[in-house]
């Protein structure tokens, strides 16, 4: 009875994490008889009676409320279609695209055109994964300049850090503007090229070492040694 695998250990699908009815399965685990079994590759997280597995890899699964970075792929008479890194494109309707008044017959490419990179919010995801986006809200805009990185969506929480601690540290040391989309896309824009490069290398470092302890100190050391050069 009890915990079979300790907190913060790596489990593979099908491994039994706990035994007995004292625990409850959370995302990443399921109950089978009196056992709690991991169904994803990841780190075990035991908080109170809840046992979950924090995945280390995985494709981006859109959720309502996510702020994502997307690229305009297509446009029709009333919609823009945006690639947000999922199998199917998300729709940005004219109503949600801007607060400006769009006249009948206006040239829609004046607002957003092919290959524009935007920060948008997911307003709705249906059961069959049709995705609606909105551009109305604080910080939602078209991005200009800078560079775009792509990391695994599961590593976004580590890049952001607790209450944004990690990302604000990178912003502070490198003096860059950084936007992290929940879909694993990171936009970095700085005044100096070397600062942009340092910030993007730091983000990639976090993505590589996302499963290790003491990441904040390591990234801090990396940034400080990099900014001295």
């Amino acid at each position: 009875m009890g915990i079979l695998i300790e907190d913060k250990q790596i489990v593979v699908p099908g491994e039994e994490v706990a035994e007995g009815m004292d625990f409850l399965p959370a995302p990443g685990t399921f109950r089978d008889g009196d056992k709690i079994v991991a169904c994803q590759l990841g780190l075990v997280n035991i908080s109170g009676r809840l046992i979950k597995v924090i995945p280390l890899e995985g494709a981006y699964m859109p959720k309502r409320g996510d702020v994502v970075i997307g690229k305009i792929n297509d446009l029709t008479y009333s919609n823009w279609f945006v690639d947000i890194g999922y199998a199917y494109e998300a729709a940005l309707s004219m109503k949600e695209a801007t607060t400006e008044f769009i006249e009948r017959g206006a040239e829609l490419t004046d607002y957003y055109t092919y290959d524009d990179v935007i920060v948008a919010k997911i307003t709705n995801v249906t059961k069959s994964k049709s995705i609606d986006l909105s551009m109305i809200g604080p910080g939602l805009r078209k991005l200009q300049g800078g560079r775009l990185l792509e990391i695994s969506a599961q590593k976004v929480p580590r890049v952001v850090g607790k209450q944004g601690s990690m990302i604000s540290m990178i912003k502070e040391i490198t003096n860059c503007q950084i936007i992290v989309g929940q879909n694993g896309r990171v936009w970095i824009s700085g005044t100096e090229i070397w600062q942009e490069r340092l910030a993007s290398e730091a983000v990639l470092l976090i993505a590589r070492k996302a499963h290790t302890h003491g990441l904040t100190d390591r990234v801090k050391a990396f940034l400080e040694s990099g900014s001295k050069k």
């Binding site: 593979v12 699908p13 099908g14 990443g28 399921f30 079994v37 169904c39 994803q40 590759l41 990841g42 995945p55 280390l56 890899e57 995985g58 494709a59 599961q154």
Partner: peptide, 10 residues
């Protein structure tokens, strides 16, 4: 499993 899909077992 490496791709992070949910699986009951290997």
């Amino acid at each position: 499993a490496d791709a992070g899909f949910k699986m009951k077992d290997l």
